[in-house]
């Protein structure tokens, strides 16, 4: 509010007319309507999240009303709490396993592709690039169903379960690092690398010592996105799950949501939220450490890479 007071004198000379008119003509006014929309949107988007978390501390079994405060669904209930329900354990572990494995495969695969496709031109390259972009925009249900079919009919040796899920997820996610890294490559240009090679570095050395460090922000950003997107993935993973033990939390939540919800599932999701935030924070610290001097602006920079 103080800012609007500060900016007021700047423009008071310009417009004539009534208050409303003046407000409309003042380009530096505090945009009340936009601000209301934004904060209203944030409330709308975050209140369900807050309630979902609060319910995990419910003292009752209800999922629609909040009755704080109990750790029943976290660990005190001997059979249905997060700590004591082996199905929820395995779901949480499966979610983390799938997303970490996928991330570990997708990032090198995608970064290498981005590097290659950025410097390799020709028809084949155009084709490969086309397919890569196609995998990015393809609705997930198409991808999930077709991968499920291929494992059911053609590549029958792949059992449904973790293996199939990871193979499907990697396919769905591999385009993220490609797109993010390519954008970064374009803004870097080829000068640094050339300089390195002029100074006698081999191509490999110049990539490892010069190019990769320059790409760290993009690589971290894509790893974070792949992790966050995979941990929440549902469509592909559900079609490709095999035994009950291969159902990650997202699939469990879907089943619970359509059956009897239990606050324990909220506890599991909250636990996941907390662990994602920890992972994101660690990643952010690493990102800062690795990218000293290259960042334009912290989180904003990261966000624009989405």
């Amino acid at each position: 509010m103080s800012e609007s007071v500060l900016t007021a004198p700047k423009t008071s000379a310009l417009p004539r007319g009534g208050f409303v008119r003046r407000r409309l003509r003042n380009p530096w006014r505090r945009p009340t309507i936009l601000a209301t929309i934004t904060w209203g949107y944030l409330a709308w988007s975050l209140i369900p999240l807050v309630i979902a978390i609060a319910v995990s501390f419910n003292a009752s079994r209800s999922s629609s009303t909040v009755h704080l405060f109990s750790l029943q669904w976290w660990w005190t209930d001997p059979s249905d709490s997060l700590l004591h329900d082996p199905e929820l354990h395995s779901a949480v572990i499966q979610s983390l396993r799938l997303s970490l494995t996928t991330m570990a495969i997708v990032v090198p695969l995608g970064v290498a592709f981005a590097l290659g496709i950025d410097r390799w031109h020709g028809r084949l390259a155009t084709g490969a690039n086309f397919v890569m972009l196609l995998s990015f925009v393809m609705p997930e249900i198409i991808l999930g169903v077709s991968v499920f079919f291929v494992f059911s009919f053609l590549l029958k040796f792949v059992p449904l379960g973790s293996t199939a899920q990871i193979l499907g997820l990697v396919t769905f996610q591999v385009s993220y690092p490609v797109i993010i890294v390519r954008a970064r490559l374009l803004s870097i240009g080829k000068e640094y690398e050339e300089a390195a090679m002029d100074l006698g570095a081999t191509p490999r050395q110049s990539i490892r010592a010069v190019l990769l460090p320059l790409l760290y922000p993009a690589i971290f950003a894509s790893a974070a996105i792949v992790f966050a997107d995979t941990i929440d993935d549902f469509v592909t993973v559900r079609y490709l799950s095999g035994p009950v033990s291969s159902e990650p939390l997202s699939v469990k939540i879907y089943n619970f949501a359509r059956g009897q919800p239990s606050p324990a599932i909220n506890a599991a999701a909250t636990f996941m939220l907390a662990s994602t935030i920890v992972v994101a924070f660690v990643a952010y610290l690493l990102y800062r450490a690795f990218t000293k001097g290259q960042r334009t602006g912290g989180l904003g920079d990261l966000a624009t890479r989405l």
Binding site: R61, S79, R238, S241, V244, E247, N255
Partner: peptide, 30 residues
């Protein structure tokens, strides 16, 4: 039992031409 035996019931949707809305997808017969 409320939560634990949920999935059993989901799966009670029997075959024989049921449109089973079940959590995991059926592996289509080969």
């Amino acid at each position: 039992r409320h939560v634990r035996d949920l999935s059993r019931r989901q799966f009670l949707v029997r075959a024989g031409g049921t449109a089973a809305a079940v959590p995991t997808l059926s592996a289509i017969l080969d």
